[in-house]
Every structure is written in C-alpha cells, then in structure tokens.
C-alpha cells in the first residue's frame, strides 16, 4: 500500500519513444504477392477459355439450381442426420460392456472407414445387380423347403422391385450416410471419453441407469468436443456429394455442371462454376459452425474462462474479495 502511494507521488517518467524494429522482409513479400495477384487477375480477364459470360449464363439455370438444392444441400442434410444418429448409436455400442455389441461396432467402423467413399458409392449404385426384387419373409425358405421335401417353398410377406427402392438418390444416400456414421462414431466416442470419469460416478451414485447418465450427463458434456469436428464432417460431406457423379445421381450440382460442359464442349467454365458454387456453400457452413461452437462452448469455453478471469481481475483491483467468489 505504502509503495503504491510513493510511486503516485513521484513524478511520472516520460513515455518511451524508441525506434521500432524494421521489417524489410514484409515489404518484399507484399511486393511479390502484388505481382502474383496482378498476373492472376490478368489471366482471369484476358484468357478466353474462362468464357465468363457463358458461365454466368449457365450456372443459374433451373436444372443446376435443382441439382444444387436436392442433390447437394438435401443430400448433405439427410446423409449427415442419418450419419450422426447412427454414429452415436455405434459409439455407444463400441463403449458398451456387451462384447457382442462392441465387436459389431468395431467391425462396422473397420469396414466403412477402410473402403474409399468413391468405391463405396460405385458399389451401392450397382447393388441392384444382386437382386431384382427385395422381399421380406422367412429367410432361407427355399432351402428349408427342400429339407422337408417341398419344392420351391416361398414364404414371402411383401417385396419391392429394387429398381423402385434403390434409385440413384437412395443408393447415394445409403453410401454417404453409412460411411459417415463410421467417422461420426469415432468422433462421438472421443467426445464421450473426454468427459471426466467422476461425472459417471456421481450419476451412478445418484442411482441413474447407464442410459440415463449417458443421455442426461455424459452426452451433453461430450457435445463440446463433438461439435467442431462434426462441423468439419458436414463441410466434407457437402463436397463429397460431388462423388455422386459415380453412382450416378443425375439431380446433383456437379453432375449437371459436368453435363452442360460435355454437351457444349465448354468444360472449363463449368468446372470454374462448380468451384464457385462449392466455395459459396461451404462459406455459409463455416459461418454456421462458428455460431454452433460458440453456443456449445458456453459455461466453459475460452470465452467463458476469460470472462471469469476478468471478473477476478476486476475484483482484485477493486479490492472486493466478495466479488471474486460470488
């Protein structure tokens, strides 16, 4: 206290006016970048192959917008919904005490993470080759019938032509969602494991069942760890819908742009249009992810901690200890 008073009574020393360190490297970098940017802009404007007017004219046509809405946006949303839900289930199975569930979950993630998405989509696109009809009933009915001496026993309840069910959209959705579930399972598992063991113990001591403590205590806390990588997964999924070209799914952004390019022999402008569309869509998702992370980080994120620290500093400065620990 006394030292404080002494310093305030003495004359305040003159503020420091030192020569700052020079950074010539920065100026050189700026110059080089400036030249490169000028070259790039020059290329964009002068090179005829870009054919900007053609691109702008075609990239907003109805088939392309429909492909964007259904094949890209709707597909991303549904595939992620199924992927996240199934992923949570598989993660919980993986952490279960039941060895059979654990084994099944491991096998699932092993398979769907090992096969490339592109290959998986090609397989699902052609899975109709296996069956012309998909039917529900008693399994192995014909074989069982032979066992009892009945020829060609058929115990089927109902069925569909696989052509009706496994449309391009369904096959693509199945491929993307199932593969996404495998990645989401790993993310959710990491999230669940990041929650302090003490939380589980406290919930158990209160007499909560495993399902209750998972739903009410562990998963809400795991969300903080799960959300950011899930945002990345969504962005990756949006881009991976372009792989639907290989199923094939015709009502899809990249398929449509590619088709226009092939038809008009002006393929390059259409690929540039694809770049611009995907840039636009992912940028929207990035903004969404920012707000999601801020929401789920409340209470303990860096922002929350900084606020608490600020309050502590303010209380110390004000000399009111009652405010440090409210």
């Amino acid at each position: 206290m006394t030292t404080d008073q002494v310093t305030t009574e003495r004359a305040r020393p003159e503020p420091i006016r030192a020569v700052p360190v020079r950074h010539p490297g920065r100026w050189i970098t700026v110059a080089v970048l400036g030249v490169l940017t000028a070259m790039f802009v020059h290329l964009l404007v002068t090179n005829e192959a870009f054919n900007w007017s053609f691109m702008v004219d075609r990239m907003f046509r109805p088939p392309i917008i429909e492909g964007l809405l259904r094949g890209t946006v709707l597909m991303t949303v549904t595939a992620m919904l199924i992927g996240v839900t199934l992923g949570v289930v598989i993660a919980v199975m993986r952490l279960s005490e039941n060895p059979i569930l654990r084994g099944v979950a491991w096998l699932y993630t092993w398979f769907f993470r090992a096969v490339p998405r592109l290959v998986l989509l090609a397989v699902f696109g052609n899975i109709g080759i296996l069956w012309s009809r998909i039917e529900f009933g008693v399994p192995f009915d014909t074989q069982l019938g032979q066992l009892f001496g009945i020829d060609n026993l058929q115990l089927r309840l109902f069925g569909f032509s696989s052509h009706d069910i496994l449309t391009g959209f369904m096959a693509g959705l199945l491929g993307l969602a199932l593969s996404e579930a495998a990645y989401m399972a790993e993310i959710v598992r990491a999230g669940i494991q990041s929650v302090d063991q003490g939380q589980t113990e406290a919930a158990q001591a209160l007499g909560m069942s495993r399902g209750q403590l998972l739903r009410r205590v562990v998963l809400p806390q795991a969300m903080r760890v799960i959300i950011p990588p899930t945002g990345n997964e969504t962005i990756a999924m949006l881009k991976d819908t372009s792989l639907l070209l290989y199923v094939p799914v015709s009502v899809e952004l990249f398929f449509q742009l590619d088709a226009v390019g092939n038809r008009t022999f002006k393929i390059f402008p259409m690929y540039v249009a694809a770049c611009l569309w995907y840039l636009f869509l992912t940028s929207i998702l990035l903004v969404g992810q920012y707000f999601l992370e801020r929401h789920f980080g409340k209470g303990y994120g860096t922002a929350g901690r900084a606020r608490l620290r600020l309050r502590g500093v303010a209380a110390e400065a004000g000399g009111n200890p009652g405010e440090v620990k409210p």
Binding site: Q199, A202, A203, A205, G207
Partner: peptide, 29 residues
C-alpha cells in the same frame, strides 16, 4: 441403481454436473 438411491455420496472433487445450475444439479436425479 435402486439400492444406490438410498445411499448418498459426496466426492473429493465434487463432480457436479457443469452444464447444469445448482438447482438443476439437485433436481436431476
């Protein structure tokens, strides 16, 4: 779980649910 409900436990590191308020911590179970 039913047996544990008759036995309260307090831990060294509190183990309160951080995403719930004091009141919600108490009403949860």
């Amino acid at each position: 779980a039913a047996q544990r409900r008759a036995i309260g436990m307090v831990f060294q590191r509190f183990n309160l649910f951080p995403h719930k308020t004091a009141l919600e911590n108490v009403t949860e179970a």
